[in-house]
Design a protein around this nucleic acid. Sequence first.
RNA 1: GGCGCCUUAGCCCAGUGGCAGAGGCAGGAGACUUAAAAUCUCCAAAGCGUGGGUUCAAAUCCCACAGGCGCUACCA
Length: 1011
Amino acid sequence: MEYNFRDIEPKWRKIWADEKTFKAEENSAKPKYYVLDMFPYPSGAGLHVGHPLGYIASDIYARYKRLQGFNVLHPMGYDSFGLPAEQYAIQTGQHPAITTAENVERYRDQLDKIGFSFDWDREVRTSSPEYYKWTQWIFKQLFDCYYDNTTNKAERISKLIAEFEENGNAKVNACSDCETLFTASEWKAFNEKEQDTILQAYRLTFLADSWVNWCPALGTVLANDEIVNGVSERGGHPVEQKLMRQWSMRIKAYAERLLTGLDRLDWTESIKDIQRNWIGKSVGSSIQFKVDGQFELTTQGGNIENDIYIEVFTTRPDTIFGVSFMVLAPEHDLVDQITTPEFAAQIAEYKKSASLKSARDREADVKNITGQNTGAFAIHPFTGEKIQIWIGDYVLVSYGTGAVMSVPCGDQRDYDFAKHFGIEIKNIFENIDISEAAYTEKAGTIANSDFLNGLEVKAAMKKAIEAIEAKGIGTGKTNYRLRDAVFSRQRYWGEPFPVFYKDGLPHLVEDKFLPITLPEVDKYLPTEDGAPPLARAEKAAWNHFEGDHMEFNTMPGWAGSSWYFLRYMDPKNEHEFVNRKKADYWKQVDLYIGGSEHATGHLLYARFWTKFLYDQGYIGFDEPFQKMINQGMILGRSSFVYQMLVFGVYSGVPRDDHENMIPVELCPPILVSLNQKKIIDVYFKNVSENKFDNKNSKDFSEIKEKLDELLKELTTKANPENKYYGNYSLTTDFQSYPKHVDISIVDNDKLDIEAFKNSREEYKNAEFICEENGEYICGSEIEKMSKSKYNVQTPDELVEKFGADTLRMYEMFLGPLEQFKPWDTKGINGVHNFLRKLWRLFHDAEGNVSLSMEEPSKDALKIVHRTIKKLTDDLDRFSFNTGVSNFMICVNELTEQKCNNKAILNDLVILLSPYAPHISEELWEKLGHKKGTISYAHFPQFDESLLVEANHAYPISFNGKMRLKIELSMSLNPKEVEEAVLANVDAQKWLEGNAPKKVIVVPGKIVNIVM
RNA sequence: GGCGCCUUAGCCCAGUGGCAGAGGCAGGAGACUUAAAAUCUCCAAAGCGUGGGUUCAAAUCCCACAGGCGCUACCA
């Protein structure tokens, strides 16, 4: 019988499903192991070959751990709230729950075909009310907590209120936006709204007016990490700044712990670096600069102040004497107050132009130095000098205090600004030349700086901070770049908040009414007056309604995915989000596999929530994912056809200036094959570079000849009716333009012309300029796989053609898991052949099972034990690609030995089963293991004694160059080896009668003779 | 601009300081076959991106440069 994966694979998948083979045990005495894949969003497009890459790796590892006797938790579920389902709902009117369910089914179908060992009984979906009930519950706990910087953990709000009632907030050391100081009696005198506002400034999730990234096209706000290059990550729509009342999460409170916690994690340095940069810790100090003159400034409390101070944050307090001006962000609160009348108009103009610049323009404009003098002066706190105050958009209002003390000699941006506007540059560094650029190293000796003179940077910083604190104008301070995370989305398809409003104030819904389920709405669009879709819901549509109205926003995508790994431990619990005992058993995820693109989103937010839940004692660990591997993306290979375009839309346009003309497609389209296209490109390049006269160019005449021919063909093929055609010089006005073509109609770069013509209406009458042999050859490029690039390769067709085991092994065989690599099916036959070869080891020429029951031969034992060692090593360091190679070597060698020994094959099949589970189960059965599956067999133990050799062929190097080999007994000690080598006739030839200077003997490895 | 990763045969990749190569693809030769496919056997092919350094010994460790990729970016 031949290897027939079409029968074998469905057979075993059914057995696994029927017998719940991969169900994780409850109350097990076994050690646990938790293997998790990053939560997938079930998109309508289904899986492409890149998606299962990580799943295959984690599945291999999960199966390996089961064989090692671990109780393995290996679940799968869906992050099923999200934008695409909602966009689809808007377009079609179909409820997103329906499309989501369909997509999940399709996903599941595809996953099932690959033979994963998921415990499907634990599946969770973020969009199911049973799940989001607990997302809402966690939100409530966050609302009811604040971060205490003294105990360094989240504490209940009730504790804070008690403190307010006793002492006011003077002694409170919490992470807060609250700027007002109040006493106990003042607190008690505040009305409910005032108290509520103050508490919002402490809560870990809070309602506040904040500047948000508003995306009009999507009708929602976006988090910073959902914006890429100034446009929305999803859809690429423009984003603008807008002030909105939003729920936010006070992730800033955890900045320090999120940073230091990284050190304990077994993640790649690059991901940790990304998070470190994102958190952006800077240590320095705050310093207040008094503005020269008297003002009338009304403070928040309603008092009038005459002195205005500008607070800055700096990481270089040691350079305080190098300050020669200050710059405020254009949006800084004090700009209007301090601007002198003669500069008012210019300042107003600058502010206006700065506000009109989008984030994207500002980004593109980095090198353009702009700014405006306010006319005001600040007093240097130590020298008493008057220094100019400017505004400039290189200072960001959202970082630090929105103002900087400019030290042009030590900061390149300040330096450029000073040069541009002719402001003084003081040099406070000893023996450093700053005539060309600022000196930005944090090293050297400070000079021209009064009491800091002669000090090294580090000592100077310390002394400067002491002086600043002594003067009462500032204090040592740490700043984080990390911003609080906006938690509201103006969307329908997300978790509703457990919140209602009464008299404009938010209140939490009681636990007993949870979950607040998504109400039905007539349309999934905002209301006429711009409220989110939930505002459309009738009062009766809510399963619980309280107060004036319920919260209309929904939660963002990262809400459900921030704690899902906990729910898998206890997915059906109706009383708790997770039972503490179960969480104590399963603990952290031991191995987390997924893409690195979630570095600043999901991976940060999940850590934040985990730390919070730990602080509140709900779980016993404060990091969710102990070890993480980021699989590299599998890229697609796109195919291109080249369509001819003609420049210009009407005659009379000066044709030597292509930049101002629009290329227009010819009708019918003319498509040029790759090699012909290259000739044309060379030709036009020569035209544009005026290389026509270059008759010396070797292939020029050939190209010209071919081109003339081609252009003649172009003329005859072009539709004479084509209005864009006929008035142009063929030598200058044409250009080829690459267009993606579906890879399913391209075979080995050869285009199926008929299929192409039928693929789209506009190609029906297309004309082709082919290669000499009549074939149309496509160009190609390696790009991200995507529907729009027509380069998506689904796993389904490969499973159909080669089987899941081949697909699994081939995906691993492509290269190291972490590496980005192009998809290419060229090698898949080799992997498939390997499985067939393996199959033949078990069968005779007639296809009957034929096994030898004898004692295994020493050679065979050696082969299999070497494989055990290599495979164990490979798996322990997650080197899945080398594992596949090692199986190939093993099977090649056993084939060579014609080994059909049962004991040998038994071990081999167990080794292979994590990679190729279906064929392994089938062969396991043929080996006579009738009961149960191979999934719970024992992983074979490596026996070193089987690999010990009596002799070793020592490579003998002279000055590091290997010259000969001498076979010596392994029992010789280094001294004996040296003697034996020096006595050897061949070795003496190389010595040429000289005595060696030195002989290095590495026992069992090599001998190096230094002459 | 900053940070990180990569560069070994025509291609994908092993190589954990000690003989540059295990494997697969592609290529060549042969066997089987009427023939082809499939299968089997055999063969050829790189001196490790470049330049320094450390070492008895470097693809491997260190430094610089080049090329490719990814992330991040006026963060004071």
